[in-house]
Computed example of a mutant assay.
Amino acid sequence: MEHPGDAAAASGSSSEGGARPGPAWIPVTLLVLAVIVGGGTTVDAVLIGHSGATAVWSDDM
């Protein structure tokens, strides 16, 4: 059974104008969080690598 909105959605035309409206701060917040998490991951990787290199190259055995 076909719903009235199915034909409009299938043809690409919609009375809503395409994207759903929503608060503009949500994508910005997600972008900021992604940058912070990415930066934290990079810092962790550098610190882990540095501690591994220190362990390998130190004479404290």
Rank of each mutant, 00 (worst) to 15 (best):
M1P: 14
M1T: 13
M1L: 13
E2F: 11
E2G: 06
G5K: 13
G5F: 13
G5W: 13
D6E: 15
D6R: 12
A7T: 11
A7V: 14
A7C: 05
A7P: 00
A7M: 10
A10E: 15
A10W: 07
S11A: 14
S11F: 06
S11L: 12
G12I: 08
G12F: 07
G12L: 11
G12R: 03
G12P: 01
S14P: 01
S14A: 13
S14E: 09
S15G: 12
S15M: 07
E16D: 09
G18D: 08
G18S: 07
A19G: 08
A19E: 15
P21K: 13
G22T: 07
G22C: 04
G22A: 12
G22Q: 09
G22H: 08
A24D: 06
A24M: 07
A24S: 11
W25N: 12
V28E: 15
T29P: 00
L30F: 14
L31G: 11
V32S: 09
V32Y: 04
V32W: 06
L33H: 03
A34V: 05
V35C: 07
I36E: 05
G38K: 01
G39Q: 04
G40S: 02
T41H: 01
T41N: 00
T42V: 12
T42E: 04
T42W: 12
V43K: 06
D44K: 04
A45L: 07
V46M: 04
V46C: 02
V46N: 02
V46W: 02
V46G: 01
V46S: 01
L47I: 04
I48F: 03
G49S: 01
G49F: 00
G49E: 00
G49P: 03
H50S: 08
H50K: 06
S51C: 01
S51Q: 08
S51V: 02
G52N: 06
A53V: 13
A53Y: 10
A55T: 07
V56G: 00
W57P: 00
S58W: 03
D59T: 15
D59N: 15
D59P: 03
D60E: 13
D60S: 09
